[in-house]
Design a binder for these strands. Structure first.
Lengths: 365, 365
DNA sequence: CTGAAAGCGCTAACAA
DNA sequence: TTGTTAGCGCTTTCAG
């Protein structure tokens, strides 16, 4: 046997050279190496000569700092999480746009972003707890649907921010856009164009977002001194498939009556689904019937759909900004569970699917 | 002063109760707690009585395992990374679809997914190194464009898998779809419908993906015993904006000549951009001119664009599957840098934008 | 200016 | 069956 110090254990997997390796190579301690290579505010400055020896050694050994070790010592991963339900097959444009905003702002703040795809919000607080285990410094909840009981169980040690939460979450900032005002503005605009029979293809009855769009729809009629036609709000979910089916069902139930002047869909996806149904039945948009959506996703823009713009990307930006503020506060040992609500404005987007109503209404067959 | 043992340091930030806390509470050691609460294969089984005491203590203290500590000890984060360039404003449907596949497969494998948004592949290997620092167990490179020099510098200690790499990467599995065959099949189909003047709006000349589509386009003519019309390949990039502009430019350069029978775009985005240009000039699709794309993104499906399907979601699935195999191999101390190539088939997707050519060609004005 | 020591929370090996 | 010891790689006091 030689005198070579045998390693305490056959390292399972070597990640790369460590600070200790570098120190050994340069003939200094690991902390000297740390100070030079990663040292943020290690007040003690290292002599120029030592420093260059260390740098050379690091270079030679291809030293790479290990993020998990640093995270353990710092209690900080420099990573934020985004939790959402990416339901099955229908690709979610809403998610994509918000996510882009998150990515953008996170990158600007020097943070990484990890995505947690929940199968269902009902697994809720439990799952969220298991996410907040040190691997992320803060979490964005994207359109969470949590029961009040679940909300009370949310982790306390990780800053949380929600976007379009379906109910208030104790101690969690909620970011939203002014959906009621957006719906109000759009429907008022439709009324001012002369439309009267406005069919609203709404979202789920339990969704506050859907409720707010309906409220805006009703208020627009009210403030115009008009009454919305009976049976002109049809619930479904926010998907294209739902838009297709739900319009079809509605039309079947209204045979022989007048075709609406315009369809106001609660999402772009619904609108595009509805468009399929209209086209399949041979109606032309907007000559025979106008169509407007809600969200202003890329899909809408590419279809030239008139819609209500929600500032999706900006919601993502703002969520990150607020989350970072809370993370920093926590690390400064300040209060970081600052509940609050931020509401961004919505806005009407013109498009090729909207024009004035026909003179003579068509009849539903 | 009381006799209370003062803590060694005022804990900067408490994550949650630790195993030591739980052990103390239950009157056992931390490793007993570890064995009970997290213990995978800690052979020594704990007495039932102790176990329940530990579980109770954990419950009471709301114990949560700390992911970073575990990662440091295990050298494993149970997280995979996806690196890509998400260029500026134009939302990337290609990314969304692949990413969905990745998320799906990663979730099934119990892994999380973190996204690294590169500003540019040219920062390349350097940036990728800084990503592979223990925070992820493996990395998927999405459509990387790396110079050979950069490719040689890729990290060795982290398994890597590429999707649609623009050049072979030493030691990195590359997943792709058969673009040449897809283009060949589509153009052959167009020819069989009687189309002859097929304008190909291609991608960047340096992109191998673009080159392969062009190769398929040429081979289809060749195998049909025909010659492609002169000046009927126009380069651009893969975006809608490019499709718009590049078709416009081409049309301007071809004034007075016959309008092509059909446009074969190298991406759905290009096709949709081209559609705008055609519509703006008053041409109807497919009555006046047919249009087909490439990719089969959601955008194409929603526009009923005829296109060539690349199995984007499946590419994401497969990338994760292969990556996991390599990560596992590495942890078993087996070889994990297994270069290879996997090519998935492409397929023609019918759509409303394709019909037979006009009898009399229109003239470009 | 530099090194020694302790600890972040967890796990694997070895004693008891 | 359980506790002890020794790290994973890095940072941060605190002495020298």
């Amino acid at each position: 046997m030689s005198t070579a110090a045998k390693p305490p254990r056959a390292a399972k997997v070597r990640h790369a050279a460590t600070l200790a390796d570098v120190g050994r190579e340069a003939g200094v301690s690991a902390m000297a190496a740390s100070a030079v290579l990663n040292g943020a505010r290690t007040s003690s400055r290292i002599a120029e000569e030592t420093r260059s020896r260390i740098v050379a050694a690091a270079e030679k050994l291809r030293y790479r700092p290990n993020a998990t070790a640093r995270a353990l010592a710092d209690r900080r991963m420099n990573t934020i999480g985004v939790a959402t339900t990416l339901s099955g097959s229908e690709l979610n444009q809403y998610f994509l746009e918000v996510f882009n905003g998150v990515l953008e702002a996170a990158a600007a703040a020097g943070q990484n972003t990890t995505v947690f795809a929940l199968s269902d919000w009902q697994e809720g607080a439990q799952r969220i707890h298991s996410i907040c285990d040190g691997r992320i410094d803060g979490l964005i909840l994207l359109a969470p649907w949590l029961k009040p009981e679940a909300a009370a169980e949310l982790p306390e040690h990780t800053p949380l921010v929600a976007i379009h939460a379906n109910s208030e979450l104790a101690g969690v900032l909620n970011l939203e856009s002014d959906e009621e005002a957006g719906a109000f503005a759009m429907v008022s605009h439709l009324l001012s164009l002369g439309h009267r029979r406005i069919l609203h293809l709404a979202g789920p009855a339990e969704s506050v977002g859907a409720q707010r769009r309906i409220a805006g729809y009703r208020r627009a009629y009210a403030e115009a001194g008009l009454k919305p036609p009976a049976q002109h709000v049809k619930h479904g979910d926010f998907s294209a498939e739902s838009g297709r089916r739900s319009l079809e069902e509605w039309l079947q139930s209204q045979q022989g009556k007048a075709l609406p002047d315009v369809i106001f869909a609660a999402s772009d996806a619904i609108a595009l689904g509805g468009l399929e149904t209209l086209t399949a039945r041979g109606w032309r948009v907007p000559a025979d019937i106008s169509l407007v959506g809600f969200d202003d996703t890329l899909l809408a823009r590419s279809a030239h759909l008139a819609t209500v713009r929600q500032p999706l990307r900006e919601l993502g930006n703002r969520a990150v900004e607020q989350l970072m503020a809370r993370i920093d506060a926590k690390h400064r040992d300040a209060a970081y569970r600052l509940p609050n609500t931020i509401i961004l404005p919505t806005q009407i987007v013109p498009g090729a699917t909207l024009s004035v109503p026909r003179q003579q209404p068509l009849i539903i067959t």
